[in-house]
Design a protein around this nucleic acid. Structure first.
Length: 467
RNA sequence: GCUCCCUUCGUCUAGUGGCCCAGGACACCGCCCUCUCAAGGCGGGAACACGAGUUCGAGUCUCGUAGGGAGCGCCA
């Protein structure tokens, strides 16, 4: 049987980090087994679902490279199907109409709580088999078995056993005629031939009642895998109010999709001591059964480290478009300066994100924004600096080939001839080119400025040194 | 309240009864390298929640305690 997994978000917001990991694991599980991965949009909550959110989810998945083989399928397009299945359940006596008002249900729950019991539906309609009639309170409830147990072997949690006595008769069709989540997922997963349901462990408690529905429908029960949550750095649950960022916000913050994927795959899963995984390796090595059972915290520092690993090891040409995207975001035209691939080579050892890289790259695309007074005072006002800079200016002006190597050689010669250390000449040049005393290696700093700009800035620095 | 789930360094984790006085990675600290900042190399501190039990032997199995989480919706 070919493995079929799915990712089924509800479009009520962006694709957040927890959802992204769930999607990744489901995708990996399908790819590892040569199966299919399906994207389904659970939009039965008409009040909270938006088209923008649907788009955000699709964009996020695309950016991460989690491609689906089928979908996106929308639940709202399947209303007739849910009604048919509900009718089938009704006909077979596995479901019934109920007419309690929301207030009555609320009272029922409160009373159960007061008795120290679990709040459950205990209405009379379960016994009565009331016919269908027009009533604003009319819902359809599933007739859950009242005895026995439900057992399932969760791929990550292990064997989970549940007493049917703990379960009540859940609503499967609401008074507005829409199916509820627990019903719609089951119908969908059956119709779509899902063999393995992979989702957040906030759904473990729903699983036994869903299994009962599968059984009432005579359907094959899929395998389940419930993933532990991802917590914030402080150990608190991630929520939109509390640090949960959308996947696309990670792009904006300067992370590479592969780095995010790598971070996510290691959050709750591992393969020995390996930290870096190519996509191919992830697919090859991943097995949902190896996923951890406990929640994990999101650690931005490690993501940063991973991101840098990818910036350092991927080919600069491959990352260049992503850097160009970041440059444009801060108002820089990448065409008005050095090749972004060269910028990557100069900066990848120094920053952890593309966003920082773009910020630092500004000096090569636009005039110096601000001179750092301390740097100027220390290096441009020093004794004997002006002649050194003048010599440098002359050397660069007559340099045959404008390359980091050639520039490096020129500076070394200069230092030797002047009988000074590299620092004595590199620092003033650095301040001349960047306005600060921190930048990549001096030859790259000068090279990336381009000969014209470099000479011009050194000229200005000489004036400052003489002033 | 009830049901279910979880618990190894600060964090992510390795570990499936002896290979573990617990290994790796991030972070942190120190040294080296060095034109700044980094990167890199080398080194360091740092954990089996607690208590019983099973066993010749327990991080690994069982029970209990504590702590954390989820669910108990006509939300998903």
């Amino acid at each position: 049987m070919t493995v079929r997994t799915r990712f089924a978000p509800s479009p009520t917001g962006y694709l957040h980090i927890g959802g992204a990991r769930t999607a990744l694991y489901a995708w990996l599980q399908a790819r590892h087994n040569g199966g299919q991965f399906i994207l389904r949009i659970e939009d039965t909550d008409r009040e909270r679902s938006t088209d923008a959110a649907v788009q955000a989810i699709i964009d996020g998945m695309a950016w991460l490279g989690l491609d689906h083989d089928e979908g996106p399928l929308f639940q709202t397009r399947r209303m007739d199907r849910y009604r048919d299945v509900a009718q089938r359940l009704l006909d077979a006596g596995n479901a019934y109409y109920a007419y309690e008002s929301k207030d009555e249900i609320e009272a029922m729950r409160a009373a159960a709580m007061a008795r120290g019991e679990k709040p459950r539906y205990s209405g009379a309609y379960r016994e009565h088999n009331e016919p269908c009639r027009d009533d604003p309170n009319r819902v359809i409830r599933f007739r859950n078995p009242s005895s026995g147990t439900v057992v399932f072997d969760d791929a990550v949690k292990g064997r989970v056993e549940w007493n049917n006595a703990e379960l009540d008769d859940l609503v499967i069709v609401r008074s507005d005629g829409f199916p509820t989540y627990n019903f719609a997922v089951v119908v969908d997963d059956i119709d779509m031939g899902i063999t393995q349901v992979i989702r957040g462990d906030d759904h473990v408690n729903n699983t036994p009642r869903q299994i009962n529905i599968y059984q009432a429908l005579d359907a094959q029960v899929p395998a389940f895998a419930h993933l532990p949550m991802i917590l914030g750095a402080d150990g608190q649950k991630l929520s939109k109010r509390h640090g949960a960022l959308g996947v696309m916000q990670y792009r904006e913050a300067g992370y590479l999709p592969h780095a995010l994927l790598n971070y996510l795959v290691r959050l709750g899963w591992s393969h020995g001591d390996q930290e870096i995984f190519s996509i191919h390796e992830m697919i090859d090595l991943f097995d949902i059964a190896d996923v951890n059972q406990s929640a994990s915290r999101f650690d931005l520092a490690k993501l940063g480290w991973l991101n840098q690993q990818y910036m350092k090891n991927d080919s600069p040409a491959e990352i260049a478009p992503e850097l160009a995207w970041h440059l444009r975001r801060i108002g820089i035209d990448p065409a008005q300066g050095p090749d972004p691939a060269d910028v990557i080579i100069a900066l990848r050892d120094r920053v952890q994100t593309l966003k920082e890289m773009a910020q630092r790259a500004k000096i090569w695309y636009a005039p110096i924004e601000q001179w750092d007074d301390k740097s100027v005072a220390k290096h441009l006002r020093a004794d004997g600096v002006a002649p050194l800079l003048q010599t440098a200016h002359a050397k660069f002006a007559s340099l045959g080939e404008w390359s980091p190597q050639a520039i490096h050689v020129a500076i070394e010669e200069l230092a030797n001839d002047a009988g000074v250390g590299m620092g004595k000449i590199a620092q003033p040049l650095r301040v001349a080119i960047t306005g600060t005393q921190v930048s990549p290696s001096i030859e790259h700093t000068i090279y990336l400025a381009g000969r014209d700009v470099a000479l011009k800035r050194i000229g200005v620095a000489i004036e400052r040194a003489l002033a």
